[in-house]
Design a protein around this nucleic acid. Structure first.
Lengths: 191, 191, 191, 191
DNA sequence: GATGAATGAGTGTTCATTCAT
DNA sequence: TATGAATGAACACTCATTCAT
C-alpha cells in the first residue's frame, strides 16, 4: 500500500473514531508512519484530506446504491435489498459510512458545507427510492396503506440508527439483518 | 436567569451544534455574555462543564424514563408510551438529548468515560424495558413471535435514529410520531 | 491568633518554601483558612504582603543584631556571639531568615527593590561588624594578620551558606554551631 | 550558534536571574530571538527545558569534580584544589552553577524532584571528598583534630555561600580565592 | 517524494485583583 | 470584618501550516 493510501486510511479511521476536530495532523502522521508535511504534499490541508475521504466514501456509497436498480415487481424485495446493502456497506467501509451518517448539526445546517451536500444526497436517494417502493407497493396492494412521507422518514431513521449502532460495534447481537428485514416486512406487507 | 444558568444553556447549545472540540471556551463566553474565567469559577474546565451538561441531561432523561412505570396489561401501550416520551424529551431538551445520543466511538469505547457510562445506562434501560414488553406481549399472544434480542436492538436503533433526525431538525415532516407508532404496531401486534 | 496573623505566618511559610512566584494568593488563603479578598483587606496585594513579611523579618533580624553591642576587649568573643546569634535567629524565624538570604539575582540587582535594600542592610551590618572585629583583633595581636575585606566576605559567605543549609533542614548534623565557631577560631586567633 | 543553543543559553540566563516561575516562555523566546513554539519543538515544555539546563549543568559540574582525582599525600592541597575548582566553575558557567545551588526548599524536599537529586549528588560528592581529606589529614598529623561531619558541613556551607555570593556578582572583592584558601588552611593545618 | 525546523494564530487555563453586599 | 461572584491580563502550550532543502 502506498504511503498516500496508508495516510488516507489512517485518517479515515481516526476521523471516524474521534471526530474531525479531535484528530490532529501530527496524530494522523504518526499513526500512518509518515511525517506531517507529507500530508500537505498530497492534500491542501486537513480539511481537504477530510473532504477527500468523505467524497470517496460518498461515491462508494452511492455507486453501491445504484446497483439496486429500478427494479422488480415485488416492492418489499427492493426494500429488503436496500437494507441488506446497508449492512454490507457498513461491514465493508465502516469508517466512511460512519462519517457520512454522523456529521454535526452545524455542518449539516450550513448549505455550503460538503457534509451537508453529502448527507442531503444520501437522504434524497433514500427518500426517492423508498417513496417509490411504498407508492408502488401500496398501489399494487402488496403493502398496507400508510402515510408515505412520514413512513419513508421512519425507515430512514431506522437505517441511520442501524448504521451508527453497527459502526460503534457496541451491541454485537446476531441476527440483526434478518430481524430488521422481518420487522419491516411485518409492518409493511399484507399477509 | 443567573449567569451560571446562561453559561450552561449556551454551552449545551454550542456543544450540541458543533461538537465538544469545535466549541471554544471563548465562544461559549461570548455567546453567554460572560467572561471566560467565569467558566472556570463555576466549573473545573471545559470538560467538566461538558460532563455537567451531560450528566444533567442524562438525569433528566432517566427520570422521565422512570415515569413509564412497570405498567399495564397491554404491552404495545407501553411501547407506544416509550416512543411518545422520546418525542417529548427531544422537544423539551433537544441539545442534551442529542449529546447523549451522539458521543463519538472513541469515547463510547473508553469504559472510563462518562459518555460511555451514560450511553450504556440509556441502552440498558431501553433494552430491559423493551425486552420485558416483547416477552410479555409474546407470551400473552398480543405480539407475533419474534427473536427478542435482535428485535429489541432494531427498536433501539429506530429510537436513536429518530432522536438524531429530530435534533437535526432537518426533515420536519409532520406526523412522524404517529407514523412511528403505527409502523411498530403493525410490525409487532397480531391483528 | 488573629486571622491576620495566621495569614502572615502562612504566607511566610509558603513564600519561603516555594518562592514568591510559585505561591498563589488562593493557596495562601486556603492554607490560612481564610478567603482571598481578606488578603486585600489587610494588604494592598500579594507583593505588599510579601514585603510586609520581609520588612518584619528584616526588622527582627536587625534588632537582634543590635543586641550584640559594640563590645568587649576580646574580638573573637564578638565573632562567636555573631555566629551564635545567627544560629538562634534561624531557629526562631527560619522562614523570614531564609527569605532575607535567598532573594534572586534580578531583585538584588534592582536598586529600587526592597529585597535589595534589605540584603544590602544585612550585608552592610555584617561587613562593618566583622571589619571592626578583624581590625581591632589584628591590632591587639589577638588575630593573625589577614587581608580584611576578603576575609570579611569569606565570613559572610560562610554565615549565609549556613543560613541556607539550616533553613533547608537537609543536613541535620549535630554540633554545627560549635564546629563553626571552632573553625573560625582556629583560622583567626593566634594560639 | 544554532537556534536551539541560543534558546538554552538564554533560558539558563533568565532562569538564573529571575527564577523558574518569574521567567515566562514568551520572554525566553523574545530574548533568544526565536518564536515561542520553537521551545516546544525542542523541549516538551518549560519544565523540561529547565531540567535539561539543570542536568547539563550538573553533568558539567560533576565531570569537573571528577578531575580532582583521589590524589596526593598532602590533604590540604586537595582541599585547595576543590576550592580553586569551584571558583573556576562559577566563572565558567555562573548560571548553571547558581541554579544548582539555589533550588527552593519545596523542590529540595521533594525526593522525586530533579533539583533534589542534583543537589543531593553535589552534596554527596563534596561530603565524601571532604570527609576523606579530613580523615587522612588528621591521621597523618597534617590537620588538627576536628569533629569530621560537622566540619565537613561547615566547609560545604562555605563553598555554597561563596557560589551564591559570586554568582550574584554583588561583592566583587578581589583576592577572595586566596583569602578563602588561607582561611581554611589556618583553620585546618597545624603550623 | 520526503523531511527537520520553524511559525502565526489560537487554545484552555490561571492569576492577582476588584466589586457588590 | 468578611465573602461569593466576577474579570483583565497574562500564561504555558498546541495547532495546522509553511519553508528550505
Amino acid at each position: 500500500m502506498s504511503k498516500k493510501d496508508t495516510l488516507v486510511k489512517t485518517a479515515a479511521r481516526l476521523f471516524a473514531a474521534q471526530g474531525f476536530d479531535a484528530t490532529t495532523t501530527i496524530q494522523i502522521a504518526r499513526e500512518a508512519r509518515i511525517t506531517e508535511p507529507l500530508i500537505y504534499y498530497h492534500f491542501k490541508g486537513k480539511e481537504d484530506l477530510f473532504l477527500h475521504i468523505l467524497e470517496k466514501g460518498s461515491d462508494g456509497y452511492l455507486s453501491r446504491m445504484k446497483t439496486l436498480g429500478e427494479g422488480g415487481p415485488v416492492q418489499f424485495k427492493r426494500i429488503e435489498k436496500l437494507i441488506t446493502l446497508h449492512f454490507d456497506i457498513v461491514r465493508d467501509m465502516p469508517d466512511e459510512t460512519y462519517l457520512i451518517a454522523s456529521a454535526c448539526p452545524a455542518r449539516l445546517r450550513d448549505e455550503g458545507d460538503v457534509c451537508a451536500r453529502i448527507a442531503e444526497t444520501q437522504r434524497k436517494f433514500l427518500t426517492s427510492y423508498l417513496r417509490d417502493c411504498l407508492k408502488k407497493g401500496m398501489a399494487s396492494g402488496e403493502f398496507w396503506k400508510v402515510p408515505v412521507e412520514p413512513t419513508v422518514n421512519v425507515l430512514i431513521a431506522l437505517i441511520n440508527g442501524l448504521i451508527r449502532q453497527r459502526c460503534l460495534r457496541l451491541e454485537q447481537v446476531r441476527g440483526m439483518k434478518k430481524a430488521t428485514i422481518e420487522f419491516c416486512r411485518r409492518s409493511l406487507c399484507k399477509p
